[in-house]
């Protein structure tokens, strides 16, 4: 696959619809950025451990109920499309 096909594919994965013009503009820009990132290949990384994020530790707390948003507040971002404290969505599966 060409880079253009790859980018069109990831656009679909990322739920972005690109116009032909946008794809035209983005491909060389993204290509030059991805090429720039190839600099990492100069390094021999076989002996370096892969870590997702070595700065972090897991933190847990006792499972006590604490004050949080009310249901009304939690759905307040969608005034028009909520019913009885729930979001109303489009049907996902066919009847």
């Amino acid at each position: 696959m060409s880079r253009k096909d790859d980018i069109a594919h990831v656009a679909k994965l990322a739920k972005l619809k690109l116009t032909d013009q946008e794809l035209e503009d983005f491909v060389p820009q993204i290509e030059s950025i991805l090429d720039y990132m190839q600099v990492l290949n100069e390094l021999d990384l076989d002996l370096v451990d892969f870590k997702y994020n070595s700065m972090l530790n897991n933190v847990t707390r006792d499972d006590e109920v604490k004050e949080s948003l009310t249901q009304e507040e939690a759905v307040s971002g969608r005034v028009n499309t909520q019913t009885d404290g729930a979001f109303t969505l489009n049907r996902v599966v066919k009847k």
Binding site: I7, L16, I30, L40, L43, D49, K51
Partner: peptide
């Protein structure tokens, strides 16, 4: 933002994560 989402989706996607994301995390250790 679209450009950045596209690149980030690319560098995380199957087939490219090893080449980009995993490598970059190792460089982060360096």
């Amino acid at each position: 933002t679209k450009r950045r989402i596209l690149i980030g989706t690319y560098t995380l996607s199957a087939g490219f994560a090893d080449q980009y994301y995993n490598k970059a995390q190792k460089v982060r250790e360096l």
